[in-house]
Design a binder for these strands. Structure first.
Lengths: 243, 243
DNA sequence: CGCGGGGTATGTCGCAGTTAAATGCGCGCG
DNA sequence: CGCGCGCATTTAACTGCGACATACCCCGCG
């Protein structure tokens, strides 16, 4: 059965940051897999283009977004180490979204055309990918629920809390702070709010000492009630102070 | 390479409604795959439960939803022939969403535990599943964009148009009408709108002869400008009449 | 027959969230 | 040095959408 633990990159079965094994190097060569380093601000995938590459994030953060017909931008999700990108357009055809590096990034790249060969040679990779897709889909579902049913405060709290936990789990927390190199506009576009309102909400959360996000680093105090806030409906009077 | 056309069910490489081939029957037995018929209203998957089964829809429609902490419900997507359900919870663990039959349904069922064996024996299935996931993910991304950036009218227009096209493509359109056995409340919960507001929006779209949804059947007039409406921003004066 | 429940249809009102516009602040650059 | 530019912040005025209330329709049921 071998229920592989979250294997983010086809190259890595274990965790994100381990060095390559000899076996993995052979695999890399066979399937034309390589590493790619990009600078902050680089557009890795562009909507409308026809990229034959797939990526997994090894280090750094990025955002995956889509530009609508009316010019507005929707950030679909944020990319962290372990995430996958490039599949969304289907197994072929042009990309339906863009990916941009919010910090310097290191990516694991391989060819979409090799996927079929890879699955045949290594069914375990297919299993990994299915797993990753399932988790990804789960989070997209959560996001939909957030956009559809929660108010601004809950959305902001939920999003930041989730990112915080996600990055902490990968060991990126330093003294209770985690790197989050996004602009407030990125967060606003992800949550379907205006920049102004996002800002106000952040200010309130900061006042209440529920979180602190400055200079690209997010800090959440030890006994922060943020989790409650993100989940519980604000109707509840005991949480009400938030407004 | 064999870029398999959208193979909805592990049992069917071609289209949705073809009968099983002898080869497929052998496959069914080997991997303990079966068919399941359920009545309208049946809850197929329940959030919190621990179902070991995966499903693909062969016939009928359903909704996949999630109940939030505050009691509100978010419909994540609607299920049509060809759609996949049951994976979202990850490859194991309890379901994070529920699935309910909106009409009588016929499902293709198989065991999550067989997935690994199946992938090993038939890499093509893994490829299919990856494809399906990619398409699914694409639509979830679209939904997120809709919830985040579009107003009520655009959301309703977009959602109904998409379903209409989807079902037409599978040949379910009869005289320009397509079966859509959902309540307005379901649509509202999917779009993050109140029932009342959804209703009013539908009324306006009906007045403008852009669509007609009655008695579980959706009709869209041949030269309906619905598509424009769903995509173009209402700022444009020529579309403005809608308000 | 009357009664109740589920779904649909409309009107009014208030607030959360939007749009617009202006200020401050740090940084790279001619 | 001072100008421009990206980003964060703040204030003020407007509005889309949700909450609530009410009414209608169809159908099954005692």
């Amino acid at each position: 059965m071998s229920p592989v633990a979250c294997a983010a990159c086809p190259l890595r079965k274990r965790t994100i940051f381990t060095p390559f094994t000899a076996e993995e190097v052979v695999f890399m060569q066979k399937f034309k897999v390589g590493e790619l380093s990009v600078d902050r601000g680089t557009t890795i995938l562009m909507e409308g283009s026809n990229s034959p590459q797939l990526y997994t994030v090894l280090r750094g953060q990025g955002i995956r977004y889509k530009t609508l017909e009316n010019g507005r931008r929707q950030v679909i999700n944020f990319l962290f180490p372990g995430d996958f990108a490039g599949l969304q357009a289907g197994l072929m055809g042009e990309m339906k979204h863009s990916v941009e590096a919010s910090s310097d990034m290191v990516l694991c790249v391989f060819d979409r055309g090799e996927l079929w060969q890879m699955f045949r040679a290594q069914p375990g990779r297919a299993y990994d990918l299915t797993w990753i897709s399932a988790v990804e889909e789960h989070f997209l579902g959560e996001t939909i629920a957030s956009l559809g049913q929660r108010d601004a405060t809950q959305r902001v709290a939920w999003a930041l809390l989730r990112m915080y936990e996600r990055l902490s789990a990968v060991g990126l927390a330093v003294e209770g702070a985690v790197p989050l190199p996004f602009r407030q506009q990125d967060l606003a576009d992800a949550l379907g709010l205006s920049l102004v309102h996002t800002n106000k909400t952040l200010a309130r959360l900061r006042e209440l000492q529920l979180l602190n996000w400055r200079d690209g680093r997010l800090h959440i105090p030890a006994r922060s009630e943020l989790a409650k806030l993100a989940l519980v409906d604000l109707e509840k009077p005991e949480i009400r102070p938030l407004m």
